[in-house]
Design a protein around this nucleic acid. Structure first.
Length: 501
RNA sequence: GGUCGGGUGGCCGAGUGGCUAGGCAGAGCUCUGCAAAAGCUCCCACAGCGGUUCGAAUCCGCUCUCGACCUCCA
């Protein structure tokens, strides 16, 4: 059962075939660490975490590269060119790298909360200035870029002329043609420096007030918007690699420009499969900085955002995202998250119970039809993943199975209705799909307050037992707790305290 | 204005022309000392109008409508 992925480049689902099996190279555009991550950011990172996990599940050895953009770009085109990170830093009276450090930590923290596996390599833009400069030099040498007043621009018209003949015109990924863009591109700053307004910057001359700046053959400046991904992807994954991922909003211009730059440098289309996740919306509108409608992850986790009635755990958010297919928009609301929270709880409780069982006895199923149905549901999990990572359908099947598990637990179906072999299959497969592939984990629901209450209750029961000289019970409580790392201490004054390991 | 993608039951969301995903909410029942949890049952939707077809949520046309990208954006 081969994995099929929707390739934005060809606009169709294609069977995934790596260039050099069993190795797979995957590049995903990471965050700009100039601010706190919001829910919209969570979607690509969870989506590609699922893809990463699933590829590994299929036996591939994946190198997953996800960058960190720590060299700011332009705050706003049309205004004076400014480094976004430097601008914010001045406002917050921080050094740029101090800001980068702060938000990088927050980002890593959030990724961990979501149970996203760390990428194989997480390169930073500032750590690869040299590679970016080298790449720009190459593009100039090949005649597809030109210097103007200390900045370097990519010659889009020339690229399009040359590569249209090789069936790779500028706009191939996003389905645009250059003529339209020449008409519609807005007036931008420094137009006079460019040969054409569709040209994009590879290197920008740094104005005096610009904090982040590097030496280059063209003077002091900083890299353009798109070159970092091309440089780092080439360095770690080679001239051509398997998968390039990111949000749909990066398709144009970011990925389009990457294709142009990398193709000139490496003479190959950089990635074979371009995978784009759709946006998370709120009231039908894309969640994004420009719309001023973002819900930060920290606000989600502590419930502090005004539209939320409560806090939602990272696993609830992850599950919420997995309940839809990644290529569709996903509308966010408090109500939708509440639904996810309840659903996830029910699913995980059933799953945990199943996991703890050992099935040995019944070798044959007394309800053959039900037995067969269970096996079908289990086997479909992989088929659904293969179909462009349809996690929505995977989850739906898990909810077909959950009532069956609960029915066994509550003895609503006969213990031997389903064979031990089938239950065991379900056990192992659910573990693989729920934990390894979907990356859902059991969250420690008990907070410290609740835990304290529980322990106090046990202490009371033990006191009662002791007063009745029911030492078997009192010892049981004490011994069981200590095996969990909770030590009960009988103080001399008759009080009881406890400590956690 | 240009280029694309949508409109599915109260809400979120899958859907390969025929066999009416799933979750949450709501109603009823079973279980329970009462709850909770769990199970069972019900709630048969596909923007509108035409067309193709034996048969359309799914294909075609038109209309209405929402959104994305074209500018940093996941």
């Amino acid at each position: 059962m081969p994995l099929k992925l929707y390739n934005s480049l060809t606009r169709q689902k294609e069977v995934f075939e790596p260039l050099n099996a069993p190795y797979v190279g995957m590049y995903v555009c990471g965050p700009t660490v100039s601010g706190e991550s919001h829910l919209g950011h969570a979607r690509p990172f969870i989506t590609f975490d699922i893809l990463y996990r699933y590829l590994m599940h299929q036996g591939y050895k994946v190198r997953y590269v996800r960058n960190i953009t720590d060299a700011g770009h332009f705050e706003e085109e049309g205004k004076q060119a400014e480094d976004k990170i430097a601008t914010k830093a001045i406002l917050e009276k921080l050094e740029p790298m101090e800001l980068v450090q702060k938000y990088t930590h927050l980002y890593h923290w959030a990724m961990e909360q979501f149970n996203n596996l760390p990428p194989s390599i997480e390169p930073t833009a500032t750590g690869h200035i040299v590679e970016q400069i080298e790449m720009i030099k190459k593009i100039i040498a090949d005649g597809f870029a030109y210097e103007a007043n200390g900045s370097v621009y990519f010659d889009v018209i020339k690229y399009n002329d040359v590569y249209s003949k090789k069936n790779q015109p500028y706009g191939i990924l996003s389905g645009r043609n250059l003529e339209d863009q020449l008409d519609t591109t807005r007036e931008l700053d420094n137009q006079d420096e460019k040969k054409n307004k569709v040209d994009f910057a590879l290197w920008k001359k740094a104005p005096a007030e610009h904090i982040m700046r590097w030496q280059s053959p063209w003077g002091e400046g900083f890299p353009g918007w798109h070159i970092e991904c091309s440089a780092m992807a080439t360095k770690y994954l080679g001239k051509q690699f398997d998968i390039h991922g990111g949000g749909m909003d990066l398709q144009f211009p970011h990925h389009e420009c990457e294709i142009a730059q990398s193709t000139v440098c490496n003479h190959e289309m950089p990635a074979r499969y371009w995978v784009h996740n759709n946006m998370i919306t709120i009231n039908g509108r894309k969640m994004g900085k420009s719309y001023n409608n973002v819900v930060k992850l920290s606000e989600l986790f502590d419930g502090s955002h005004p539209i939320l009635t409560q806090a939602y755990s990272p696993m609830t958010v992850r599950f919420f995202i997995l309940q839809s297919q990644y290529r569709g928009t996903l509308d966010f609301s408090n109500e939708a998250l509440q639904a996810s929270e309840k659903a996830l709880k029910r699913l995980m409780e059933a799953y945990q119970w199943l996991k703890a069982q050992s099935f040995t006895n019944n070798t044959s199923a007394s309800d053959a039809a039900l037995d067969k149905q269970l096996i079908t549901w289990v086997n479909e999990l992989g088929e659904f993943m293969d179909d462009d990572l349809n996690t929505a359908k995977v989850v739906a099947n898990l909810f077909e199975i959950a009532p069956l598990i609960n029915s066994l637990k509550d003895k609503h179906i006969a213990a031997d209705a389903i064979s031990a072999a089938s239950w065991t299959l379900a056990q192992t497969q659910l573990t693989i799909f729920i934990e390894n592939i979907l990356g859902l984990k059991v969250e420690n629901g008990a907070n410290q307050v609740q835990l304290h209450g529980v322990i106090q209750l046990l202490i009371e029961i033990r006191k009662d037992a002791k007063s009745r000289k029911d030492f078997a019970t009192s010892d049981k409580i004490r011994n069981q707790l200590i095996s969990m790392g909770i030590q009960i201490k009988d103080e001399k004054d008759g009080e009881v305290s406890y400590s956690l390991a």
